[in-house]
């Protein structure tokens, strides 16, 4: 009732004031974890005489599905939040137009995984293992350093992972093990997961469930190692009550060559109503002012090499020297088969 009255009032107002120029609106479809400081966005709005209209599309996969389904008459002008596990699908669906933003000059080439410039890298982060410092100190256990360590008898029943069929961190970790072990020779990724299963790995469907219900550091759970983000310890320190501890309550385990780098991309949707503004917004997202806002807002690294990274990140969210090396095209081609094989090994 309230809303229909409001709607009616708006209609009347528009009829009554002919020539009333509405400000231009740029629609941005993002995943639900998108965050930015309001004043940073307001500066873009003021400079370009535009109102930004964000809509949250759920997680990365859901957001992309919505964008693909609304092909032709898209839900938005700009799409943000597709990551490199979904990049292949976004490109195959042919929903984006290329835009070689001048801002790409400040972005390292290895982040620019789409040579057609339809998807431009905005930020990146790493999926690795977090461990509960107190648990390992109390038990006098050595913290595992490698993927192989996790299959050792001392680590029995200590690890919780996410289902790669329903969770991005879960899929990222599976891909990291595939990149590390491969499927040839004596130790394959399949045999590795079979050994994790023998070591009583716990699988849950989502990161929230793993982190808040099963990870021991969060109070309730009893598993001291969890597949999570490399920035989670820094986040925990930042969120800790004052007086803050000197180090975060959790630590990172970054296995050599086996932490997955997740890159998130932005692109302009085909059929955008405001293509000029969309290009300006992409430039803005890659510019230093927006990029410097990224770490403390979204807890990932900015792609622009010139953007400042806070001290907290440098201390507690290290960038792995050798991340897992895997080709996005290989991910798109094999994702379903990998997940199926993984389910057979770990769940059945």
């Amino acid at each position: 009732m309230r809303k229909s009255a409001l709607l009616l009032a708006i209609c009347i107002a528009q009829v009554a004031v002919p020539g009333f120029a509405a400000p231009r609106v740029l629609r941005v479809l993002t995943h639900s974890s998108f965050a930015a400081t309001p004043s940073v966005l307001a500066a873009f709005e003021a400079a370009n005489g535009v109102t930004l209209q964000f809509s949250a599309g759920g997680d990365g996969g859901e957001t992309l599905t919505k964008a693909i389904l609304s092909k032709g008459n898209p839900l938005a002008d700009v799409l943000y939040g597709v990551d490199n596990t979904f990049l292949g699908r976004a490109l195959d669906a042919d929903i984006l137009v290329p835009y070689a933003s001048p801002a790409l000059a400040s972005i390292p080439a290895d982040l620019q995984t789409d040579p057609s410039h339809r998807m431009l890298p905005v930020d990146f982060g790493y999926i690795d293992l977090n461990y509960d410092r107190k648990y390992f100190a109390d038990k006098g256990l050595a913290v595992p350093r490698t993927l192989e360590d996790l299959a050792a008898p001392a680590m029995k029943s200590l690890l919780v992972v996410e289902n790669p069929a329903t969770s991005t961190p879960g899929l990222a970790f599976l891909i990291a093990t595939i990149a590390h072990f491969g499927d040839k020779g004596q130790a394959t990724w399949q045999s590795y997961w079979a050994s994790l299963r023998r070591n009583d790995v716990l699988v849950v469907n989502g990161w929230e469930d793993a982190y808040y219900n099963e990870f021991s550091e969060q109070g309730k759970g009893r598993r001291p190692i969890v597949v999570s983000y490399a920035t989670s310890p820094a986040y925990e320190l930042n969120a800790a009550a004052d007086p803050k501890p000197a180090v975060p309550p959790t630590g990172n385990i970054i296995p050599e060559g086996a932490s997955f780098r997740q890159i998130e991309f932005v692109g302009i949707l085909k059929g955008a109503r405001e293509p000029d503004l969309a290009r300006k917004f992409v430039d803005f997202m890659l510019s230093e002012s927006f990029q410097a806002d990224i770490p403390m807002q979204m807890w990932v690294y900015p792609s622009n090499a010139k953007a400042a990274v806070p001290e907290l990140f440098r201390k507690f969210a290290p960038v792995p020297s050798t991340p897992a090396a895997i080709d996005p095209a290989a991910i798109e081609a094999n994702r379903d088969a990998w997940i199926k094989a993984w389910s057979q090994i770990v769940l059945k």
Binding site: T166, V203, G206
Partner: peptide, 24 residues
């Protein structure tokens, strides 16, 4: 999804998985 864990599914959870994650 939450209480059943990865080993229990219904048609609906499978629809979601197929549509969103597999794009099948």
């Amino acid at each position: 999804l939450i209480l059943g864990g990865p080993r229990i599914s219904t048609l609906e959870t499978e629809i979601y998985r197929q549509a969103v994650y597999m794009f099948n």
